[in-house]
């Protein structure tokens, strides 16, 4: 009796288990649906997609839900996979849409940035132009100042020339030391010529580009040869006086012209006195000395 009951129990238990197994059992996953679910979950957790592609994401969700519904109702496998496929592709569309929208936002921002950069560039250019203008003005002013300086120097030089009692001739500036500054038949400078030599020295120091040529002249008394020697000695005497004042010999030419170039008649003493002289020719700015023709 007991055994029968036990058998009955065992039998019905087995029946129940077998029925359960046949009916439900854990349903196998559909790999396409699972794939679509995973893709959708990933997109749904991406705030960029949620924010930038809500419509496409919604469409993906609708297709996914259809697929899940048919799957749960054990519907047509083909339909389950069809909607799962649509859900997966719609999810991809949502993701790409989000990327595209984000990129377009970035383009807008980048364009704004580009404008900003250009603005900065233009400002920098304007500042550079301003700086250049200021420089130009300063240069102009310094040129003006130089011109003023040059004029001042020219005026000073004119003053010096007056002090030297020089004459502006066609050969340029010519200074004549007359006979009275030398003793007769002598090449020694008289004390009175000291002033002229000192003036000449400071003139040459002040205008370093200028050179001088010292030309010695005599009257016609005495042999030509002797007069040439005398004129050379007198020119050299002036040169030595200048050199002893510190003027470089390279700046000084001496020429002995003897009686060749009289400035007055040699017939009377007054004329001869004018002919006994030393002429100092001052060069131009470039150190060029105009020679006798």
């Amino acid at each position: 009796m007991r055994t029968t009951k036990f058998l009955q129990l065992l039998l019905s238990g087995t029946l129940i288990i077998s029925v359960l197994t046949a009916c439900g059992g854990p349903p196998q996953n559909n790999p396409l649906l699972t794939e679509a679910e995973q893709a959708y979950n990933k997109a749904e957790n991406d705030s960029l997609v949620v924010l930038k592609a809500p419509v496409a994401l919604k469409e993906a969700e609708e297709n996914l839900e259809k697929s899940q519904e048919i799957w749960q109702n054990k519907g047509d496998k083909e339909l389950v996979e069809h909607y799962a496929y649509l859900a997966k592709q719609k999810t991809a569309i949502a993701t790409e849409t989000a990327k595209m929208n984000a990129a377009q936002d970035q383009v807008e921002r980048a364009e704004a940035e580009r404008k900003e950069v250009l603005l900065v560039a233009r400002k920098a250019e304007a500042e550079a132009a301003e700086r250049k203008a200021q420089q130009a003005i300063q240069e102009l002013e310094s040129v003006k100042a130089e011109a003023k300086d040059a004029q001042k120097r020219a005026e000073e030089m004119a003053g010096r020339i007056n002090e030297l009692e020089a004459n502006q001739t066609e050969r340029g500036l010519v200074l004549t030391l007359s006979d009275v500054l030398f003793d007769f038949n002598s090449a020694d400078l008289k004390a009175g010529s000291r002033r002229v030599v000192d003036e000449l020295t400071s003139f040459l120091n002040e205008y370093p580009n200028r050179r001088i040529q010292i030309e010695g002249h005599t009257d016609s008394i005495g042999s030509e040869e002797y007069n040439k020697q005398l004129s050379l000695r007198r020119a050299n005497a002036v040169k030595e006086a200048l050199v002893s004042n510190g003027i470089s010999t390279s700046k000084i030419n001496t020429v002995a012209l003897g009686e060749e170039y009289p400035v007055a008649s040699n017939i009377n003493e007054a004329g001869r006195q004018q002919n006994r002289r030393v002429e100092i020719i001052v060069s131009d700015e470039n150190g060029e000395i105009s020679q006798r023709k």
Binding site: Y85, Q89, T97, K99, A103, V107
Partner: peptide, 19 residues
Amino acid sequence: VNAELAQIKSLSAKAQKAV
């Protein structure tokens, strides 16, 4: 759905290239 995806993918790639 594939044509749509192809279109949006192209537009997205172009936008990213522009950036």
